[in-house]
Nucleic acid binder design. Sequence first.
DNA 1: AACGAAGTGGAACGGCCTTTCCGGTTCACC
DNA 2: GGTGAACCGGAAAGGCCGTTCCACTTCGTT
Lengths: 221, 221
Amino acid sequence: MSSVTPANREGARPLRRDAERNRGLILDAARQVFASHGLDAGFDEIARVAGVGVGTVYRRFPERRDLVEALFEQEIDVVVARAEEAAADPDPWRGLSEFLHWGVESQAADRGLAEVLAAAGRGHERVARERDRLRPAVLSLVQHAQRAGVLRPDVGELDLGLVVAMLGRVGGPERADLRHRLVTVVLDGLAVRRDAPTPLAAVPASEDDLACVFEPSRPRR
Amino acid sequence: MSSVTPANREGARPLRRDAERNRGLILDAARQVFASHGLDAGFDEIARVAGVGVGTVYRRFPERRDLVEALFEQEIDVVVARAEEAAADPDPWRGLSEFLHWGVESQAADRGLAEVLAAAGRGHERVARERDRLRPAVLSLVQHAQRAGVLRPDVGELDLGLVVAMLGRVGGPERADLRHRLVTVVLDGLAVRRDAPTPLAAVPASEDDLACVFEPSRPRR
DNA sequence: AACGAAGTGGAACGGCCTTTCCGGTTCACC
DNA sequence: GGTGAACCGGAAAGGCCGTTCCACTTCGTT
């Protein structure tokens, strides 16, 4: 079980060195492009960023799904780790609220990640399986906080996921100020009881107000 | 200033009767199609539903914007009325929470409305002007609740709009159960103080869990 | 260094959606 | 009822984007 067997996994022969390098370039490009344009980004944009031809992208990842899954597999680890870390915090409420803030910001910064986490399922069984690795971690986070009596007992780990997804879609990448306010309000709503609201930071004089706080980079129609 | 002047407004002559009727049919169709497919819906779909040719839609509304604006002008009135009604409620908290629930559901039921309210601005100056009619009404709602000491004093009317928009995007039209839970949590977060959480209705055994709770009717990719 | 297999780029193809255009029809007015 | 202007439908043109394909290049091997 070593050395030069030509098949490394499932009978597939290893990629030639240049192909392997291109695969990496494509994944890096896709991460970047998906993050800013979402999962619908064109393959030619990815190819352009990667510095390869479109054909190369299609040969390596014949379906969009293949690319999404390969990327997601890398990214989900970070999220799981973060959730476990939060669950291990000696102060369960701090763990919870830090995870919430972090989760919201990472989804806001990466449209692709947000879309995979929210729309996963439907056909992407591999993605669904990966995503489910997140569930026990979040569940543990929720239970710790509930046992400590700080988190309302009638919310579940799915509610928490929903809340993160929801908040992560507020504003563009640059409107962390808006999201931060709303996260604070939601956390106040998740608490078992409190005597006064957690103070909100002021919104720095936004001229355009409510306009364009969702889907800020849509093509004009 | 009466009778037969050929120009009724801004020098435009009145439409022929059949044209006027078609205009109405198109608006009705557009309302319906925008509600389910969002503002990106194709003009031919609208034409099909209206029972007219595509050409007719284009002649009456040369730009998509014209159609959106004409529709929005009709719909915003309802929202404004509802906000004023809520502000006039003798129980300010009840007014606020009923408005929140209603606003969230109406946006969830009408993707087009949600998109106009959120993305308005950019170029649609007519839409922006209409939308601003909503502001004083919501402001009054907020102030009543704050003067009564039930709504936290550090949120503004823009926060409220943001919250409605955000919650309205959770789940498909059929997942009012999920939205209802989250609205309750957010309301608990908006309250000045409370001793115990408002109880949440249980989520009716959702098998698919978190999957597909956002953008539930996207084209498969 | 020479050969064959694997890999590459990007032009070309095809489907989809938006927009235009025009022969025929309907309406309003005389 | 006749006339002309306004209006209509839907076919066709045009543009955009995802996908395929193949002549050429690169790599690994002998």
